[in-house]
Design a protein around this nucleic acid. Structure first.
Length: 275
DNA sequence: AGTACGTCCTGATCGC
DNA sequence: TGCGATCAGGACGTAC
C-alpha cells in the first residue's frame, strides 16, 4: 500500500523523469468520484496550460503547485494514491498499462497516468493545499519529529498505540505496514494503550518509525521503481512477515496475527510483550 | 472530544 | 475443480 516511502519514491520518480517544468495540455478523468474538489467540469477546465512548478509531499499526499506565468502558483494539484494507486509518465505512443483511471496529457508528448485498480485514490485542484486537507501530525523524517513531540500527542490518548499510528493527525505518512514495522522495531505490543507508554518506550517508538521509513526509502533509492502498484515492491526482503505462524526475524518465535480497528496486525509475542 | 465501526472498490485468495 | 465468500486497507462519515 502506498505509505510515506512509496509516496516519496513516487515523488522522486516524478522529479527524475522531469515532470517539474512540464505543462499540462489536457486531462481525462475516467472515474468522476475520484475528484474531490472542485466540481468535475471545473477540475478539467483548470488543468490545461498550467505548468508544474515542483512536486512536494505531505504525509501520503503529493502536492503539485501549478503556474500560468512561471512564477506565481495559480493552484495546487493534490494527488492521493489511496490503497492501490500509482503514477507513471510514459510517451503517449506507449500502450497504457491496465487500470489507468486518469490521464494528464503533457505538452511534451508524454502522459501522466494515474493507475488505481480499486479507485481509492483522490484528486483535488485548489487555491491552497493546506486549506483543503485536514491537519497533519508531525512529518516523521523532519527534525521536528522528536520523542518529546510524539509523547505529547500519545500521552493524551488512550486508544491502542497501533490504531493511533494509523491516524494522520498523530504522525503523517504511516500506514498499516510501517506501523507494524515500527512497533516491532520498538518492541512494543500493538494494543498497548498509548498513554501507558513510558518515555523510554516513546523514544524507542520514534526511532522505530524513523528506522522503518528510512530503511524503506534507502531500499527504493538503491533502485528507483515506478512505484506501487507494480513489482518489485521489495518489502519482503526486509519487513516482518505479514502472516501468522511465520518465524520472527529476530528471535524465531511464531508471529501472531490479530485485528486492531479492523486492520490486520502482526507482531512477535516474545519481542513485543503485552506488559 | 475520543473512540469505534461501516463504507467505498476490485483483484487475489480462501474454503467448501 | 469450480465458484461464491472473504480479505485487503486509507480516509471519511456517522454513531455512541
Amino acid at each position: 500500500m502506498p505509505e510515506l516511502p512509496e509516496v516519496e519514491n513516487t515523488r522522486r520518480y516524478l522529479e527524475e523523469i522531469g515532470l517539474p517544468g512540464r505543462t499540462f495540455s489536457s486531462v481525462s478523468i475516467g472515474w468522476a468520484r475520484s475528484v474531490r474538489e472542485p466540481a468535475l467540469e471545473d477540475f478539467v477546465l483548470g488543468i490545461p496550460n498550467r505548468r508544474v512548478l515542483e512536486i512536494r509531499r505531505r504525509g501520503k499526499y503529493l502536492v503539485l503547485p501549478l503556474t500560468e506565468n512561471d512564477f506565481e502558483p495559480a493552484a495546487d494539484l493534490i494527488l492521493h494514491l489511496g490503497m492501490t494507486g500509482g503514477l507513471r509518465v510514459h510517451p503517449r505512443s506507449q500502450p497504457a498499462p491496465p487500470m489507468v483511471r486518469h490521464t494528464f496529457s503533457l505538452e511534451d508528448g508524454r502522459e501522466l497516468r494515474f493507475i488505481d485498480p480499486r479507485k481509492f485514490g483522490h484528486l483535488w485542484l485548489v487555491p491552497d493545499w493546506e486549506d483543503a486537507l485536514p491537519t497533519f501530525g508531525p512529518e516523521p523524517l523532519d527534525d521536528s519529529f522528536t520523542s518529546q513531540a510524539l509523547a505529547k500527542i500519545l500521552n493524551a490518548r488512550h486508544a491502542p498505540i497501533k490504531a493511533l499510528l494509523l491516524e494522520q493527525s498523530v504522525v503523517a505518512g504511516l500506514g498499516n505496514l510501517y506501523a507494524d514495522e515500527a512497533l516491532f522495531l520498538a518492541g512494543i505490543h500493538p494494543i498497548r494503550p498509548a498513554d501507558s507508554l513510558s518515555g523510554d518506550e516513546v523514544s524507542k517508538l520514534r526511532d522505530g518509525i524513523v528506522a522503518a521509513l528510512t530503511t524503506a526509502l534507502h531500499h527504493y533509492d538503491q533502485s528507483r521503481v515506478e512505484g506501487w502498484p507494480d513489482p518489485p515492491f521489495g518489502l519482503s526482503t526486509w519487513t516482518i512477515p505479514r502472516r501468522a505462524d511465520e518465524p520472527c526475524p529476530r528471535c524465531g518465535a511464531s508471529m501472531v496475527g490479530i485485528r486492531v480497528r479492523a486492520r490486520s496486525t502482526f507482531f512477535c509475542p516474545d519481542c513485543q510483550p503485552r506488559e
